[in-house]
Structure formats: C-alpha cells, structure tokens
Amino acid sequence: MFHSLGYSILFQFNELGQITILGLKYFKYVFFTFKFFQRFIEQVYELGIKSLSATVITSIFIGLVFSLQIVREFSRFGANYMIGGIVGLAIWRELGPLLTGVVVSARIGSAISSELGSMKVTEQIDALRAMSQNPIKYLVVPRITAILFIMPLLVGLADFLGFVSGFFVATAIANINPNAYFNSAIIMLEPFDIVGGLIKAVVFGFLIGLISCFHGLNTKSGSKGVGKSTTKAVVQTIVCIFVVNYFLSYILYQN
C-alpha cells in the first residue's frame, strides 16, 4: 500500500513538474501568437462562442439564487439597503470568476483536451513535428492566449448579468428600492473589486489552457485514452481553480 501511495505521490509531482515546464515554454513562445495570429483569432471565435451561452445562463441563475437567499435574511435584520452591495461584492470578487472558470473548464477545457488528444492518437501531432512544426508554438500558444483573452470578457459579462439578475429578485421579492440596490453597490464596491475579479479570470484562464493542453498532448491508448485525458483535464482544472482562488482572494483582498 505504501509503495503504491509513494508511486502515486511521485507521479503527481512529476506531472506537476511537466505542467510547469509546459507553462514556461508557453511564455518562451508567447510571441509566436503574432506568427499564428489567424489561428489565435480562430480559437478566440471558436472557444468564445462555445462557452458564451453556458456562461450567460449560469451567471444569470447564480445572481438570481444568491439574491434570493440573502434577501429574506437581510430583510429580517433591516439591512435591505445593503443587498446590492453584498450581491455585487460576492459576484465580482468570487462567484463570477469562480463559476465562469468552472463553466469554461467544462466547455473549453474538455474541448481542447479532447481535440489535442485525438490529434495525438491519430498521429497528427507527430505529423506536425515531422513537418518541422513545434506543436507547442502551433497548438498550445494560440489556445492559451485565446483563453487569456476570452476569460476576462466572459467574467465581465457574467459579473454584469449576475448583478443585474440579482437586482430583479431583490426588487420583485423584497420590494427593495431600485436606487438603494445600485447605491449600496456603488458605496460598497471599489474599482479593485472588479479588477481583482478580472485578474482571477486571467489566472484561471491560464490554468484551464495549460492543464487542458498538457493532458491533450499526453494522451495515450486510443479513443479510451482521449476520454481519460479529457476527464482528468477537467477535474484537475476545476480543483486547481478552487485552490488557487483561495490564495488569490487572500492576496488580492485581504489588504
């Protein structure tokens, strides 16, 4: 048992090391985004459109349910005037980036991992290398850069929709004055709350792209392997996002 536990820990560290190396290679080759600019635009279009509907629906319902949960409690304590600010803080700081990260992991991360995995098992990656193309420059760099570009846009949209949908519940159920909702948000929210959320979006985007590309490029054993690497990519990305989110919140908002 100890042997397999030790092997598993070593394997995880080895994988972490390989993901880190891939991340460093991304920064080494990031300027090749300009060389493969058309591919970057294709990825922005493809990945952005793919995750737009899921992000919109998720963010609307998160705003609705969060507002629904706090409206009654705040009414009991006569703190209705704070609801807009609380919804805004929660969504801009945490819920928007975090849940958009999860949605994008599931939608884009799985798409990237399965696409690269299929390319690996059908020898397309070897074909690229055989034709003197570096798969990291050609496949990884445009994808990660595209996600880095898309994520803040999606998170910004999710934040806005979540906040506005929270407004509808607050005004319809708790009869809160619309002005009070927006005023409390203006008083409680600071510009850095929004900027911090967007910083989180960029970090989560990088993690999604990096981990998904890594597992795609390291797919083994045919179509079964594609399924395994896709699942692993999504699970690892989501876990990473939650862990990194805690530390980012600590760094960004505790001072």
Binding site: M119, Q124, D126
Partner: peptide, 17 residues
C-alpha cells in the same frame, strides 16, 4: 531544415481534420 529532406506517410494518414 534537416527534417525537410524527409517525407513521412503515416499509418493513419494523419491528415489535419
């Protein structure tokens, strides 16, 4: 540059989808 001297036909064809 060296690789340009070679052409490889893969077993699976390996055409880009």
């Amino acid at each position: 540059e060296y690789r340009k001297y070679f052409g490889l036909l893969f077993q699976s064809s390996a055409l880009f989808d």
